[in-house]
């Protein structure tokens, strides 16, 4: 089953599917611009094409302001496209995506489990299923026992875990994460990254992970999409040739460092040196 998440600004007719069977997300020639009053539109993202395979974690790295959030919001249907198409392949009854926002964005009047349940509530009336899925997601992010805590009783890291649990609970075709760990301190960030890898392994989830940190991108993903800025374009997609199962020790290894260097070098290339324009 297919669902077109983003709407094309130009032509509404769907046309033949662009995502192959093994692909969950397909972006074809996506451009996004912002209107500024009295000034010409600013093109934030230009002609961006990308495929995310089933069970793959794809990172999207690029300098601040290159359009990563804009792309993610477009995939999540929060922004319309100027041109191009976005397609997400879903199973019957499956939510196409769930977003883990940069800020925890929890409802302060809901407990952790009620917050985690928010997404499923919107899909089903089955209370028992809702509860069990929310509880399961909370347990997966290490918050078993904190079900009845309110956000203001939880630390920043725990709030972000609830944010993640809310998205995991709907078991979407693709998880969209926008720098979810960027507001945490370095130590906690590393721990959450490793836990995130555990969750991915457990759920076999497909994820698109936006970050501006090279080491985070390499550590978490199977492939890294590197963007250039102004306008945001895809520069290159690098494959992370590390075992799927990683832990904190791997990030001190030489292979890891080399991969980070490669990504950093791609990022640092002068404008106009796109591989896959």
């Amino acid at each position: 089953m297919r669902s077109t998440a983003g709407r094309s600004g130009v032509a509404e007719e769907a046309g033949p599917p662009i995502a192959a069977d093994s692909e969950v997300v397909a972006l074809d020639g996506v451009s996004i611009s912002y209107a500024h009053r009295g000034k010409p539109d600013v093109e934030a993202v230009r002609d961006f094409s990308l495929r995310v395979n089933r069970g793959e974690v794809m990172s999207l790295v690029g300098p601040s302001g290159c359009g990563k959030t804009s792309l993610l919001r477009a995939i999540a249907g929060l922004r319309t496209l100027t041109s191009g198409r976005i397609e997400i392949r879903t199973a019957a009854g499956q939510a196409p995506f769930a977003v883990v926002f940069q800020q925890p964005s929890l409802l302060p009047w809901r407990t952790a489990i009620q917050n985690a349940a928010y997404g499923i509530e919107c899909m089903t009336k089955d209370r028992k299923l809702t509860r069990s899925r929310a509880a399961g997601a909370l347990a997966m992010v290490g918050l078993a026992g904190y079900e009845n805590y309110y956000p203001n009783q939880l630390s920043g890291g725990m709030q972000q875990r609830v944010n993640l649990a809310r998205a995991l609970a709907v078991q979407p075709a693709v998880l969209l994460l926008d720098e979810p760990f960027s507001s945490l301190d370095a130590q906690l960030r590393e721990r959450m990254q490793t836990e995130f890898l555990g969750v991915i392994e457990e759920t076999n989830a497909t994820a698109l992970f936006v970050t501006h940190q090279v080491d985070e991108a390499v550590y978490l993903s199977d492939r890294v999409a590197v963007m250039s800025s102004e306008p945001g374009m895809l520069r290159s997609v690098l494959t992370v040739d590390l075992p799927k199962r990683r832990d904190a020790r791997d990030r001190r290894g030489g292979d890891f460092m080399e991969l980070c260097d490669a990504v950093a070098a791609t990022l640092a290339r002068p404008a106009g040196s796109e591989d896959l324009a």
Binding site: A76, L78, A98, V99, F101, S105, Y118, G119, C122
Partner: peptide
């Protein structure tokens, strides 16, 4: 906007967004 975006990404209806976010947020 943030919480309303959350509601939107889970395809919450306008009514559900109102009841679950706007109303309690205004209290």
């Amino acid at each position: 906007r943030e919480l309303q975006d959350v509601a939107a990404t889970y395809s919450a209806s306008r009514w559900r967004t109102f009841i679950t976010i706007i109303l309690p947020g205004s209290v």
